[in-house]
Design a protein around this nucleic acid. Sequence first.
DNA 1: CATCCGTGGGC
DNA 2: TGCCCAAGGAT
Length: 355
Amino acid sequence: MESLRPALLEWFRQNRRDLPWRRTRDPYHIWLSEIMLQQTQVATATPYYERFLARFPTLAALAAASVDDVLAEWAGLGYYRRARYLHAGAQAMVRDHGGVIPSDPEVFGALPGVGRYTVGAVLSMGFGAALPVLDGNVARVLSRWAMAPLAIKRPEDARLLWGMAEALVPGAERGDETHRDAGDWNVALMELGATVCTPRAPACERCPVATWCRARAAGRVAEFPPVPEARATESLRRAVALFEANGRVLVTRREGSMLTGLWEMPGVDLEQDMGASPPLRRALGSLGVTDVSLADTGLRVTHTITHHRIEVEVWRGTWTGKRPRASSKLVWADADAREHALTALARKVVEAARG
DNA sequence: CATCCGTGGGC
DNA sequence: TGCCCAAGGAT
C-alpha cells in the first residue's frame, strides 16, 4: 500500500496521454473538459472541446453567449442538459463569484450540473484539492483491486466505492485540504482504467500495480466489476419530411422532454402499421407548411437513442406553390455549418439523402 | 432510488 | 454487425 501510490504516479508520469485539457491548469478549461467527457469518449469529445474553446475562450464569453449558440457548438455530443447547465453555471460564476470557478467544494458543487465527481476532478486538477473522484474507470479499478463485487450504478455500492477512493487520495489520510499529487493521482487512476484496466480484455501484463490486485492474483479479473443486466431497447418508427433548397434543409425546433430546442426536419412518430403520409402532412400543416407534395424516398435511417431504436422513413418534400418560409419555428439550416443545433438524426438523414 | 438523458467508438 | 459502454447529474 505504501508503494502503490508512487508506483501508479510514476507510471502515469511516464505514460500520460497528451490531451488538450492536460496542457492547461485553467479551471474553466478543466471544467469544460470534465463536463464534455461525462459518458463520452475522449476521441469523441476532443474536436468539440477545441471548437468550443475557440468560440468561447473565457468564462465571461460563455456567460455572454446565447443558449442557442452554446447548443449549436454542443450539437452532436448528446446529453444537451450538460450544455445548458454549463451555460447557466458560467452565468452564475460571473454574477456571483467574480467570474472565476469557486475553489470551495461546497460553492462549486452547488452549481448546476456539478456533482461530486466534477467537484473532485476540477478542484484536484485545478487547485490541488485533496478530493477523490469516482467514475466508471475508477470504480472498475477499485472493484478489481479489492476483488469486491461493487457496481457504481448501485447507490449502495457507490457509497462504498467513494469511501475507498477517498482513502486513497494523497493528503487525505492526514486531513490535508490540498496536496500537490491529488490531481495527478485522480487522473492516473482514471487513465489506468481507460488504457490498461479496461472493461474487456484488460492488459494486466502492462499494469504498473498488478501486484496489488486481488482479482489478478486470483485469476478472476474478468468477473469484476459485476455487470448489472442491461435494459432492453424499444423499437420506434418515425417519418420525416426532407425539404432542400440551395444546399439548405428545412428544420423545426423540437419541443417536449427530449432534445428540446434542437433542430430537426419536420416529422411524426408512427404506430407500427400506420401510413406516414397523412400524419406527416398534418405535422407540416401545423407548422404552416402547405401546398407541398410528399414522396417516399425508400431511404430508411436507423438511429439509436437511450433505449430507443428509431427507424426513420425519409420522405422527399417538394412545394407546389410558394417555397416554405422561415418562421420562429422553422428555419432553412446549413447542415454543414454549426450555425444551428441539429440533432444527430437530422445530420444522418441529410447524409443518407446525399448518398 | 430508479429512471431519464444522446451519441459514437470499439470489439 | 449488433451490442456494450464512456471522465455523471438531476429528479
